[in-house]
Amino acid sequence: MTLLTHWPLAGLRLFTPRLELRLPDPEELAALASLAAEGVHDPAVQPFPVAWTDVGPEERARSVLQFHWRGLGAWRPEDWELNLVVVRDGTVVGTQGISARDFPVRREVDTGSWLGLAHHGQGLGTEMRAAVLHLAFAGLGAQHAVSGAFADNAASLAVSRRLGYEDDGVERHVVRGEPAVLRRLRLTAERWRQHRTVPVETAGLPECLPWFGVA
């Protein structure tokens, strides 16, 4: 018996031209936590609806560990959240998540991600999102993917536009005591096929399908 016998998600791999996405081992998770401690965004802005980065470096690192463990511990085929470490040339550069509730019926996924500050502006955000969109649409048979970004988060919105997302309404949030508008975005399977530009390969997916609620 191995870990894969009981937890096949540990063998899931997504590959793009520059990146590999996978569940992190303990050392990679520690590296991800350290990356968060060093900074994820300009402190002058807050791009996340939950301001988890507005704390000290040690608390920020600890929150990354707890967020990852909580997602794995609560996993159910009808309610799952897959948070993958993003690795480039052996270095952890960020994390890409994909989640769903009642996926067999709704066929819809949500995504979220962040990169360490040193890895911004290199096109990696597009590649890592393309990887999980391939997993969702080509691997799991999703019909929709949703995302969102605050109106002043030009980089995230540009990634979504590049990948084919369309506007899906707005939400009003409070960020640091001030009102903020979050733009919702939606990508259909048809538009995903039309806007595919990043080649993606998967490994270890067939064994994982029941864990995603896919027969």
Rank of each mutant, 00 (worst) to 15 (best):
2 T>A: 05
4 L>S: 12
13 R>S: 07
14 L>K: 00
17 P>C: 04
25 D>Y: 05
27 E>A: 14
29 L>G: 04
34 S>Y: 01
36 A>I: 00
38 E>F: 01
39 G>R: 03
39 G>I: 00
40 V>D: 01
41 H>P: 02
47 P>R: 04
50 V>I: 11
50 V>D: 14
51 A>F: 01
53 T>W: 05
55 V>I: 09
59 E>A: 15
62 R>E: 07
65 L>F: 11
70 R>T: 14
73 G>Y: 06
73 G>A: 13
84 L>H: 04
90 G>F: 10
97 G>N: 12
101 R>L: 15
106 R>T: 03
107 R>W: 11
112 G>L: 09
113 S>I: 01
115 L>A: 10
121 G>K: 12
121 G>L: 10
122 Q>E: 10
127 E>A: 06
127 E>K: 13
134 H>K: 07
135 L>T: 01
138 A>K: 12
139 G>E: 03
140 L>S: 06
141 G>Q: 10
146 V>M: 07
148 G>F: 08
149 A>E: 07
153 N>E: 08
154 A>L: 13
154 A>M: 07
156 S>W: 04
157 L>K: 07
163 L>M: 12
167 D>S: 14
171 E>I: 06
177 G>Q: 05
179 P>F: 13
180 A>G: 09
181 V>T: 11
182 L>R: 15
184 R>T: 01
191 R>C: 02
192 W>Q: 05
192 W>S: 03
193 R>V: 06
194 Q>R: 06
199 P>F: 07
199 P>Q: 04
203 A>E: 12
205 L>R: 08
207 E>S: 07
208 C>N: 04
